[in-house]
């Protein structure tokens, strides 16, 4: 239905805010993409940024899937629990978002490094255990930072809407297991996809904590995209860093566009 706003002066006043915000977001993006010539950007693809982006996107996807995998049971439990102590613990989910990311890197290091108590314990079980500059360090750190986005997205969908449908299924004689997997999960498809995208996007954007726990990933010495661009900048190569940023932004936009199209098709 077409929205009707004739005579609604507030609507026309607030158009200004919409325009300012969209320009605020778009201006740096356009500036970055147009900072270098197209041929310079193409040339930069040989700098190693492709490999960084591939690693970054795949690792972020893995972390996003992991976050969704945790969100589903976590949200079920928390939505069906009324214990105030459990509810208070649920508030911890947002905590990683507010901690400075370099601090998160330090936290991960002093928790999981093989020289630290928990790390030593893991080392006693797995003698080959390493943490610094490993895939494990990247995954654990990014999961810590990005899981809140998928958990909260799935939680809103489940507790506000889907849970009541699932309950009706149970009154029709379906077991909790069947009611959840046959009724609730298909209803949450969109929320699961949105949660995956948010966690994935948040993981791609991470730099601060990775500088501490995985400046590069052994044994290939590949930098993840944010770190790669940061190291280009530190090396005094601003034009190269901007060209790499353009590639990252452009591929990210393409990926988001693809997901939106997929969502629309459904």
């Amino acid at each position: 239905m077409k929205k009707y706003n004739r005579g609604n002066s507030l609507y026309y006043l607030f158009v200004i805010f919409f325009v300012i915000y969209i320009l605020f977001i778009l201006t740096p993006i356009v500036r970055t993409i147009t900072f270098q010539s197209f041929s310079y950007i193409v040339e930069d693809t040989k700098s190693g940024i492709w490999q960084s982006i591939s690693y970054t996107y795949l690792l972020a996807l893995f972390v996003g899937l992991l976050a969704i995998g945790f969100s589903v049971p976590y949200v079920y439990f928390i939505s069906r629990n009324s214990n105030s102590g459990i509810k208070a613990l649920d508030a911890l989910v947002e905590l990683p978002i507010m901690i400075p990311h370099t601090v998160v890197g330090l936290m991960m290091l002093i928790t999981f490094s093989p020289t630290m108590p928990l790390g030593r314990f893991i080392l006693s079980i797995y003698p080959d255990y390493q943490f610094l500059d490993t895939f494990l360090a990247v995954i654990v750190t990014l999961f810590f930072l990005s899981s809140a986005y998928s958990i909260r997205t799935v939680q809103i969908s489940y507790s506000r809407d889907v849970m009541k449908y699932e309950n009706i299924g149970r009154t029709l004689g379906l077991s909790p297991f069947k009611s959840y997997f046959i009724i609730a999960i298909p209803m949450m498809k969109r929320a699961l996809l949105r949660g995956l995208i948010l966690s994935w996007a948040r993981s791609i954007s991470e730099v601060g904590s990775l500088l501490i726990v995985a400046y590069y990933i052994l044994p290939s010495f590949v930098h993840l995209a944010g770190v790669f661009i940061y190291s280009q900048f530190l090396g005094g190569q601003l034009p190269l860093a901007v060209a790499s940023s353009s590639i990252l932004i452009f591929t990210g936009l393409l990926a988001l566009l693809g997901v939106k199209l997929l969502e629309r098709e459904r």
């Binding site: 449908y165 309950n167 299924g169 149970r170 009154t171 004689g173 379906l174 077991s175 298909p186 209803m187």
Partner: peptide, 20 residues
């Protein structure tokens, strides 16, 4: 009994037909 064994079917105000 648990919900699924009570055989007490419910029709809520908003009907809640499974939209998928």
């Amino acid at each position: 009994l648990p919900v699924q064994n009570r055989r007490a079917a419910m029709i809520p105000q908003d009907l809640l037909l499974f939209r998928t």
